[in-house]
């Protein structure tokens, strides 16, 4: 009898824990493998290649000319990946700024700007950056709508 009670309690606890997620507000799905993550992995792989090449070269396993030629190739690849990552991050910032503008209401009373310290999107109502805590300089009232002068790149 005791055993059945313990088993029953365990079953009830399981059911409660399994049902709880359905009673909450819709949770956000964990981020899928994003393009930025894929690029970061590729960049890490490129760095790994450089490290291995360096090691082989230091040990004398790779001749000078081959080493320089390959290093050049890897660096170009890493630079390309970095450029792509920068482009993606820039795009993110612009979108965040636009979202901030949208959330701020009609857009007439607030503007979205970018923190000079960390590059995160902040509202012109903010006196402090929500990302890094730096003080935000008052926005230029003529500058509206996110990353100034960069809409064309978005």
């Amino acid at each position: 009898m005791m055993a059945l009670v313990v088993g029953g309690v365990l079953a009830v606890v399981c059911v409660v824990l399994l049902v709880l997620p359905f009673r909450r507000r819709a949770t956000v799905l964990l981020p899928e493998g994003s393009p930025a993550q894929a690029l970061e992995r590729q960049r890490e792989a490129a760095y790994e290649e450089v490290r291995t090449l360096n090691q082989d070269y230091l040990l004398g396993d790779v001749p000078q000319e081959q080493y320089e030629a390959r290093l050049q190739v890897y660096r170009l690849r890493a630079a390309r990946l970095l450029q792509q990552l920068d482009d993606l991050q820039e795009l993110d910032r612009q979108w965040e700024a636009r979202i901030a503008t949208f959330r701020a209401g009609d857009g007439a009373t607030t503007t979205a700007v970018i923190c000079q310290e960390c590059g995160g999107a902040v509202s012109s109502r903010d006196v402090q950056c929500p990302h890094c805590g730096s003080a935000i300089a008052p926005a230029d009232p003529t500058d509206r709508g996110g990353p100034a002068g960069k809409e064309g790149n978005a």
């Binding site: 490290r51 090691q55 230091l58 000078q64």
Partner: peptide, 11 residues
């Protein structure tokens, strides 16, 4: 993850 450095320079 150490910084990637030039082995030639190190050499």
């Amino acid at each position: 993850r150490p910084l990637v450095e030039s082995a030639a320079g190190a050499k």
